[in-house]
Each structure stands twice: as structure tokens, then as C-alpha cells.
Nucleic acid binder design. Structure first.
Length: 891
RNA sequence: GCGGACGUGGUGGAACUGGUAGACACAAGGGACUUAAAAUCCCUCUCGGGCAACCGAAUGCGGGUUCGAGUCCCGCCGUCCGCACCA
């Protein structure tokens, strides 16, 4: 019969200081006690001026103040805290701040749903979450805390924006946006799900709006090249950014177009990555949103209808995958750039995107699948101009004819140019170069580089964001708000009873006088995308009270962030925007570096089992009791006793109710247990599964740890006793302790927290099994315990302080340097080597570490089990890898 | 479709640059202590055969390189992630 998960019980609160008594460790009294002690001694306050200590800036992605912290936060901030505390112990001057990414839609949703003001809602959430975070015992300099919705922050952001405007990184232009017709607002691409607004469910419309943009594309090449320097970033993230930037090299080519009555000299500009296939061109095509298509549609109802049809198809994945190629013949013709007198029909086609390249293409059906699909559908020519290298003569002719007539699959590989005039015989790469050269000499095109990355539209028609500090005047145009009038603060008296932007319908807020001519003018009522707020907060943390956006000296001292930690979901947007901001701020004179985050670590998610009742409704873990009988698990409802089915393990989410509240866990087991469990078992970059049993296990270990450190502590030799002569058993523990210290240090250094945890268990096991019989033993035991406690301190800081005190120390661990392992103890004098016969392990052999190969070989061959395995065979070869293995080859 | 990562016991996972596969933990089973429970401690725990010493097999599947492969190479299968009518 298995046991249900039990709630740990505490004895009456006794002092944990009673050395030698086997009292239980009580986190409920210990944790607040040590947190208070750290706060009172200002243990984590950071000054830039710290003598000759090297700086270390560790930062976790700051939280959105949703109201409650979740286990993902606990995992994220615990990892950062381990690094911060470890670095501090290693003698670094550590900056480890915390703040709030506090603007955004949820606050407005709360306003609409519950009638609470976004500001009130947000600051109340921050207050609640701050207390929760403090209960985790994080080594944070709280004096640097800020929220992005503080006017002191967003006012500086407005100043920063004006600097970027002046430096030329801001434009205002018309662009196509996702418009939600019910909420009357722009939606980001991520907020459009299957073509519908994520909140309203209304089909999203395309709208042309004048929007503010930050010109991130000015840095396309730099942002791409910079990735190469980020050797402490995950390869995966760098690759994702590389793909997102999407560099492709090719050519721009102008095709003179005939048939436009009012523009006889019109030339269609296209982008291609395959200028080598120009001789295979059979038509040109433009996007339905291309100016040419729009112009022609003005007096062509049929084309208007076609464009409308294209728009209706939507932009969801399935729609794109299943959408058939559609075209509309404009009747115009384009002149082939290389073939005199040859013309191509010009289509409007649904598969050409206005957002990429120039919104117009030339099509070579033989060597592009989409073009081929289109050509087959509309009966256009298929002209192969690249042939496989191994085909010649008649075989080649036959292949070409067959391909032109019947191919359904485009040939996109490398090959030799054919039917291509001056390009004939060249391979693809050479033909591209030659074609570009020719285009340039004819002045009808040029080699160019195209990027997928587009400028960053930052305008949002929302209230709860940073106001864009500009004023529109009918006389003077669009003007920046003078800096002495910053911050442009949000009005408090706004309503959320109707959709749309409360700032726009506020009775007075937007009416201001023009800063130039003094006549009545209008404030910009759009606010910034909240990604702007998070694009420079790491810089503000270096000087949170500076007059300007950042204090340059402080920023130069602290940046880049040495270790940044957060979720992989920010791999592209936040991390790319921050990289852009850092570069733009450098150009604007605010900062002096290119890359804000020298080291990046993306941690995995926290998962939990899901539960459903008989009706298929999700049931929260707190309402479920799980039984385990001989390994078979079953669940029932805690109150009703009704059976509950155990579902798959998934990311903790409110909708599936499979969440565990960190505060409940901390109340029950203490922060150290939660921290320990978050670091155990799973590698930090992978997902971890929260289980009650796992939390129980971590809890049991904290108790065992306390007993191990405190029981008999007063019988050990006093702290600081010099090393006596050690006998063999004491020496063995001495070695073990140093080896454990070295590998734990190495593991923390490389963020392999799960391995560090395993090594701590091993060290604890070694100490448990050690019999303290004499002075040497007492000394060795104390050393091993102290290493164990100090190594655990970054992970379970409260417990470690309590143990440190129990071991008779007067000072706190937060002021104690990290111990140093003696290199001489890391290698044993004697090593155990495996002995294999034909690659199969037969025995092992313990020899002196520096034993001669010949001696090892002789000893190995003399082993009884080895003799038996060889048995009559002839030894052909003996491989001896010193310290590792002996392999005897016999047949 | 393109790009990438991963696949090891009942479970989470160890195994550094090819060198004793399964560290450490969880779960499970057995035992000790206890009136009983909790807590704690001890033992077992990849699979097959054997009382045992031991023997054989095994890191998704199939090949290969090597004295030696979880690790390297090739081909499959599966899972997950990112991008996607990108010209």
C-alpha cells in the first residue's frame, strides 16, 4: 500500500540554534529571520565604485505584474540568484536588480472587465508580487527597482525616443496593419489567431495607417553580423534571429512596362535571388497590394474583385498552404532585359507578397516551384535554363524537352546554364555574378541584398502605455514635445466603457498648443508598443535615478549584462529589439556598446500533470488526491471523492488549471525547498515537471541537510582549527570534499545546476557514511560540512546561513568567500582502470596513477578473469590508455 | 516545404574532448525501530538465464568507422521547436 503525500508537520517553534539537538529545521522562522538580517546589513546593495572588484551584471527578464508570481518565475529568478550569490562569493561586485514590465493590455482588460483603473490594478499587483518575490529570498538590490509605468521611467523613454528621432532612427509612414474592427485598434501579428483578433474574435482587416516606426532595418547587416560575436548565446537563438533577419543576396532588375497610357516610361522593379535564370522568364507578377495593381484597379472592376478575393483568403497557415495560385492578367507587357524584342505578360498574383522584396517578381517556372504551379495553371511557357551537370548532347536535349513539356517539380539545384545567351556553360554561382555584371553595365539593375526584417511599427492605439511624445500642428506639421515639457503623462480620468483608444476620446488631454507657432494643436494619442519599454530597461538599471535615460558612466561600467536569463519565447522579438536599441542608443550617444547581453541562457518551462473530472472539466492539483498502489497511480477529487483522470504533463496554465502557487509551496515547505527542487533533476534549459513527490523529496533533503550539519556540530574541532595530521580515512574525506567542491564550482560556473545538486547529494552521502573517531576525523568532517554548506548557499541560502551558524561561525555566508579546492587533492595517487578483452569489460585494476604502461599491461594480463576470457586465443595487441582503460585484443 | 534540436531503466536524468552505461534523485518492493503511525535508518531495483560466482543482451531502428561508439559518419522511424507562397 502506497502512501499519500503528506503535509510536513512542525514541532513547536524551538530555536534552531540549539546545537546538538535534533530539532527540525523550521523555514517559517528561519527564512524571514535571515531575509531581515540581509536587508539590515544591506547585503545586496550595489555601488558601481567597489574598489578593484570586477563587475558582474546578472539579470533575469523582468516580470509582467499579472498579480501572482508563478513557478516559472521561481525557476527563472532562482537560477539568476544562484549566479548572483555565487559570483558575489567569488569576489565580484554583482549587480542583480529587479523591476516590472508594467504596461500592456491585461491592465486595460481588467479595467474593462472589472472596472478597476489600470494604474491601480498594476501597482496593487506589483506590491503583491514584490512580497512574493521577497519571500523567495533573492539577493536583489531592491533600491534599483522601477516599473515601466512609472512616469520617472517612461518620461526618460520619451526623452530617449526624441534622441532617436533626432539621430534619424524614427520614421512615420503609412503601412498595412492588422486592424481589429471591434476593439478599434491595431493588433500585433502575434495577436492575430487564424485571421481573427485574439480578444474580440472579429476577422482582422488590413488597414493602411500612418504609424511610427523605429528603423531597425538600418541595422539589418550589423544585427546579423553581431550574432557571430555572441559566443555565450544558445546556438538556437542565434539561428532563429538569423532566419528572422533573413538576408538574401540577389539583384534588383527594372522591367520596362508597355501599355500604361499615362506612364509610357514606367519600369517595374523586381527583386530576385536567381538573376541567372532571367533567360527562363515567362511572366512578371505583382502583389495585389502593389501600387501598379492598385493603380490599374482604380478603373477596372474585374481587377478590384480579384484583389478583394485575394484579401479574403486570409493569412493563416492553413489558408496559405491550401490557397491555390491565382492570377489576373493585366494586359500589360514587360520587356525582357536581355532578349531584344521579347516581352512577358504582367500578372497580378496572390502569391506575391507586398511585404517582401519589391512586391514584384519575374517568374522562371522551370526553377521555382510556385512559378511552375502558376505557369501550368495558366498555360505559360516553361523554359529550363539550368541543366544537371551530368547531361550532355542528345541526352540533354531530351531532358530539356521533357522538362519543358511535362515537369511538375521545379529544378532548383546547381547545374549548368543553357539556353541563356552569354551565360551558357556557367554554373549557378558564376551565372549569377555574370548576370548582375551585365545588368549593371546596361544600367537596368544591380546586385543587391534583401532582408526579411522590416521596420518596427511601435504605434498602439491603447491607453496603458507610454505616450509617444509628439504634437501634430496643422501649420507646422509633426513636432517633438520640447524636452522641458516631459514627461507627457497619462491622464488618470479615462473611461473604458466603449472600445477604442481612451486617450483619443479624452475631452481635453490631446488638445495642446503647438510648441512652435502656439496655435491649437493635437497630441499624438498613440502609445508605444510595450516591447519599447523592455528594450532598454537593462541599461536603466545601471543608473535608475539618473536625470537622463541612462548615466553613461554607470552604463559603461556595468554593461553588457554578463548573464541574462529568460524564456525562449523572447528569442526573437525582445532580444532583437534590445540589440537594436543598444546600437541606436550608441549612435545617439547614450551608450557605448553594440551588444547588450554577453551571455544568454534560456531556461525551460515548469510543467505539471493535468487532471479532468468525468465531465471533462479541468481540475486543479489542489483539488486532487493521487493514490499510488504498487506503482499504479489513480486520482480522485479531494472533496467529492469522484474519480479524476490523470492527463498529460503540460506547461502550467490557468486554462488547464494545472498550476501550483509558489506561495502555497513556500508556506508549506519554505523557499529553500522550492528553490532546491527547481534546480534539481532537470537540466535548466529543459522543461521541469513539478510533482508533489519531488517537492517532498526536496523537503526531506533540507531536513537531512540540517541534521547532518547541526547534529554533533559542537563536538567538532572549533571553526578555523589548522589541519592536523590526517589518517587514511580522514584523508579520504578530505579528498572527497575537495573533489566535490571543484566539480560543484565547475557546474555552477557552467549553469549545470542539476549536476551541482547531484554532487551535493554525493558529498552529503559521503559525510553521512563517515565515522568520526579522532581529532583528524573531526577536522575532516568539519571541512567537508563547511564545503557542503557553502556550496549549497547559492541554492538554499537561508538553510545554509542557519547551518553556518550551527557550525559555530560568527559571520554570515553572504560575507564569506567561496572556498578554493586544493588542486593537489583533485587527482588520486591510485586509479582504477577498466580492463577489457576485445572491447568487453572483464575486470578492473587499481594501479598507481603514474604506473608504467608495461607494468599495467603485465598486471592486466595476469588477472584471472582476463586469462579466462583470453583462454587459448593469441594476444594481438594491448591498448593502454593511462588512467582510463586497458583493452586486450585477442583472437 | 525549409531550418534546428532531441530519442538512455517504472520516472526525471548522469556519462567532460570516443574509454567501466545508468551517477544523483523520484517512484516501487522488502526489512529495522514503533502499541501504531509519521519521521528516520538498512537492503533490492535495466532485461534474460542461473541458488550463486557468473554468462548473455541492451542507450529509437538498420548499417559503417574504430582496439573500443550513448558519444563520430550514412540511411530510416519518432517527438518537439522555429520560420513559411521570402521570389
Amino acid at each position: 500500500m502506497g502512501l499519500n503525500v503528506s503535509v510536513p508537520s512542525f514541532p513547536p517553534l524551538t530555536s534552531n540554534r540549539s546545537i546538538g539537538m535534533s530539532s527540525r529545521y523550521n523555514p517559517r522562522t528561519s527564512e524571514p529571520k535571515w531575509q531581515k538580517a540581509w536587508t539590515e546589513m544591506a547585503a545586496f546593495r550595489t555601488e558601481a565604485d567597489s574598489g578593484d572588484k570586477p563587475k558582474y551584471y546578472v539579470l533575469e527578464m523582468f516580470p509582467y505584474p499579472s498579480g501572482r508570481i508563478h513557478m516559472g518565475h521561481v525557476r527563472n529568478y532562482t537560477m539568476g540568484d544562484v549566479i548572483a550569490r555565487y559570483r558575489r562569493a567569488r569576489g565580484f561586485n554583482v549587480l542583480h536588480p529587479m523591476g516590472w514590465d508594467a504596461f500592456g493590455m491585461p491592465a486595460e482588460n481588467a479595467a474593462m472587465e472589472k472596472g478597476v483603473h489600470p494604474k491601480e490594478w498594476t501597482y496593487a499587483n506589483i506590491a503583491a508580487m514584490r512580497e512574493q518575490l521577497k519571500a523567495i529570498g533573492l539577493a536583489i538590490d531592491w533600491e534599483r527597482e522601477f516599473a515601466t509605468c512609472d512616469p520617472e521611467y517612461y518620461g526618460r523613454q520619451q526623452a530617449l525616443f526624441l534622441d532617436l528621432l533626432e539621430a534619424g532612427f524614427v520614421t512615420r509612414k503609412k503601412s498595412t496593419v492588422n486592424w481589429d474592427p471591434v476593439d478599434n485598434t491595431v493588433l500585433a501579428n502575434e495577436q492575430v489567431i487564424d485571421g481573427r483578433g485574439w480578444r474580440s474574435g472579429a476577422p482582422v482587416e488590413r488597414r493602411e495607417l500612418v504609424q511610427w516606426f523605429l528603423t531597425i532595418t538600418d541595422f539589418s547587416e550589423e544585427l546579423l553580423a553581431g550574432l557571430e560575436t555572441l559566443d555565450r548565446w544558445p546556438e538556437k537563438v542565434r539561428l532563429m534571429q538569423k532566419n528572422w533577419i533573413g538576408k538574401s543576396e540577389g539583384a534588383r532588375v527594372f522591367f520596362p512596362v508597355q501599355g500604361l497610357a499615362d506612364e509610357p516610361d514606367y519600369a517595374l522593379e523586381i527583386f530576385t535571388t536567381r538573376p541567372d535564370t532571367l533567360y527562363g522568364a515567362s511572366f512578371c507578377a505583382v502583389s495585389p497590394h502593389h501600387p501598379l495593381a492598385q493603380k490599374l484597379a482604380a478603373d477596372n472592376e474585374e481587377l478590384q474583385a480579384f484583389i478583394r478575393k485575394c484579401d479574403q483568403l486570409g493569412t493563416s497557415e492553413e489558408a496559405i498552404e491550401t490557397a491555390e495560385k491565382m492570377g489576373f492578367d493585366t494586359g500589360l507587357t514587360a520587356h525582357h532585359p536581355f532578349i531584344e524584342g521579347h516581352t512577358l505578360p504582367v500578372y497580378v498574383a496572390n502569391f506575391v507578397l507586398m511585404e517582401y522584396g519589391t512586391g514584384a517578381i519575374f517568374a522562371c517556372p522551370a526553377h521555382d516551384q510556385r512559378d511552375l504551379d502558376f505557369a501550368r495553371k495558366y498555360g505559360l511557357d516553361v523554359i529550363p535554363v539550368v541543366a544537371p551537370k551530368d547531361k550532355t548532347g542528345e541526352e540533354l536535349d531530351a531532358w530539356l524537352a521533357e522538362f519543358a513539356a511535362r515537369a511538375e517539380e521545379a529544378f532548383t539545384g546547381d547545374g549548368v546554364a543553357v539556353n541563356s545567351g552569354f551565360l551558357n556553360g556557367l554554373d549557378v554561382a558564376a551565372a549569377k555574378r555574370a548576370a548582375i555584371e551585365k545588368l549593371e553595365s546596361l544600367k537596368i539593375g544591380e546586385g543587391t541584398v534583401n532582408y526579411r526584417l522590416r521596420d518596427w511599427g511601435v504605434s498602439r492605439q491603447r491607453y496603458w502605455g507610454c505616450p509617444i511624445p509628439v504634437i501634430h500642428c496643422d501649420e507646422c506639421g509633426t513636432l517633438p514635445v520640447p524636452k522641458d515639457q516631459l514627461p507627457v503623462t497619462l491622464p488618470d480620468d479615462v473611461t473604458f466603457d466603449v472600445p477604442g483608444n481612451p486617450l483619443d476620446r479624452h475631452p481635453s488631454w490631446k488638445h495642446v498648443d503647438c510648441p512652435s507657432c502656439g496655435k491649437p494643436a493635437r497630441r499624438e494619442t498613440d502609445t508605444f508598443d510595450t516591447f519599447v519599454d523592455s528594450s532598454w530597461y537593462f541599461a536603466r538599471f545601471t543608473s535608475p535615478h539618473a536625470e537622463g535615460p541612462v548615466d553613461k558612466a554607470a552604463a559603461e561600467h556595468w554593461l553588457p549584462v554578463d548573464q541574462y536569463i529568460g524564456g525562449i519565447e523572447h528569442a526573437i522579438l525582445h532580444l532583437l529589439y534590445s540589440r537594436f536599441f543598444t546600437r541606436a542608443m550608441r549612435k545617439a550617444g547614450q551608450l557605448d556598446l553594440a551588444e547588450p547581453f554577453a551571455g544568454l541562457f534560456t531556461q525551460g518551462m515548469v510543467n505539471h500533470e493535468t487532471y479532468r473530472d468525468a465531465d471533462g472539466k479541468w481540475v486543479a492539483p489542489t483539488d486532487v488526491v493521487v493514490d499510488n498502489v504498487d506503482g499504479k497511480r489513480s486520482a480522485k477529487h479531494a472533496e467529492t471523492g469522484a474519480p479524476v483522470s490523470i492527463g498529460s504533463v503540460e506547461k502550467m496554465s490557468k486554462s488547464k488549471k494545472n498550476t501550483v502557487d509558489p506561495t502555497d509551496i513556500i508556506d508549506q515547505y519554505g523557499a529553500d525547498t522550492a528553490r532546491w527542487f527547481m534546480l534539481s533533476d532537470s537540466p535548466p534549459e529543459r522543461d521541469v515537471q513539478w510533482t508533489d513527490a519531488g517537492a517532498e523529496g526536496a523537503w526531506r533533503f533540507t531536513q537531512r541537510f540540517w541534521r547532518l550539519a547541526s547534529e554533533g556540530a559542537d563536538e567538532l574541532c572549533p571553526a578555523g582549527t589548522p589541519m592536523p595530521e590526517l589518517d587514511d580515512t580522514a584523508m579520504a574525506l578530505h579528498r572527497t570534499a575537495h573533489q566535490a567542491l571543484a566539480s560543484i564550482t565547475e557546474d555552477i560556473e557552467h549553469l549545470r545546476f542539476n549536476r551541482a545538486v547531484a554532487r551535493i547529494y554525493e558529498l552529503a552521502n559521503a559525510i553521512s557514511g563517515f565515522k568520526t573517531e579522532n581529532e583528524a576525523g573531526k577536522w575532516a568532517r568539519r571541512e567537508a560540512l563547511e564545503f557542503m554548506v557553502l556550496c549549497t548557499a547559492p541554492m538554499m541560502p537561508h538553510l545554509a546561513e542557519e547551518c553556518w551558524l550551527a557550525l559555530g561561525h560568527e559571520t554570515l555566508i553572504v560575507e564569506t568567500p567561496w572556498p578554493v579546492a586544493d588542486p593537489a587533492l583533485l587527482v588520486d595517487d591510485r586509479v582504477t582502470m577498466a580492463v577489457q578483452v576485445n572491447g568487453k569489460r572483464r575486470d578492473e585494476l587499481t594501479v598507481a596513477r603514474d604506473a608504467e604502461k608495461e607494468d599495467v599491461e603485465r598486471a592486466a594480463l595476469a588477472l584471472e578473469k582476463v586469462e579466462r576470457a583470453i583462454d587459448g586465443k593469441t594476444v594481438r595487441k594491448v591498448i593502454v590508455v593511462p588512467g582510463k582503460i586497458v583493452n586486450i585484443v585477442a583472437n
